[in-house]
């Protein structure tokens, strides 16, 4: 029994190690585009976040964090320098917008022009709920009246 437990433990330890190794390797692949790290872990976290939010204008469907092209590297350098200079995330976003326009942000800004984009899901949800409530009530009243006329033909 004891031997079995130890065997289990060894197998589990081995599996844990293999998993850790796989994760480390995967992380290595994931960060291959951008090997630069900032010394401050807080800044590094913000840097990762920001560089994933900014579009690489050359390749367009990649963020500057994922793109290997030269311009993306230059933009990452700018983000790092602005972070180290103490700029806030919003200041860095508007710094980018001043130069490249709203298109550089993957997450659209909330403005009169984009309000429908942000509000449409909520409006559609409310409309959908309204329709659902009506349908459920109709069915309920049909069931309550014991109507047999629910064959799908118009009334």
């Amino acid at each position: 029994m004891k031997a079995l437990c130890q065997g289990n433990l060894a197998a589990r330890a081995l599996r844990a190690w293999l998993l850790a190794l796989a994760l480390v390797l995967a992380a290595g692949v994931a960060s291959a585009v951008d090997p630069v790290e900032l010394d401050d872990p807080v800044l590094q976290a913000r840097y990762r976040e920001l560089s994933h939010e900014l579009r690489c204008m050359q390749c367009q469907n990649q963020s500057i964090a994922d793109s290997p092209v030269g311009l993306a590297g230059d933009l990452r350098r700018e983000v790092r320098e602005l972070l180290v200079a103490g700029k806030s995330d919003d200041e860095i976003r508007s710094w980018m917008r001043e130069r490249y326009g709203d298109f550089i942000l993957f997450r659209p800004v909330f403005a009169a022009r984009t309000a429908w984009l942000w509000l449409a899901p909520a409006v559609l949800l409310i409309i959908g709920l309204g329709v659902a409530v009506r349908v459920v009530r109709q069915r309920a009243s049909i069931a309550a009246n014991g109507s047999e006329d629910d064959d799908g033909s118009p009334a």
Partner: peptide, 13 residues
């Protein structure tokens, strides 16, 4: 040489 002015001008290609 470092591409900073191009970024200030919003150059992308």
């Amino acid at each position: 040489r470092e591409g900073r002015t191009a970024i200030d001008w919003g150059v992308y290609g």
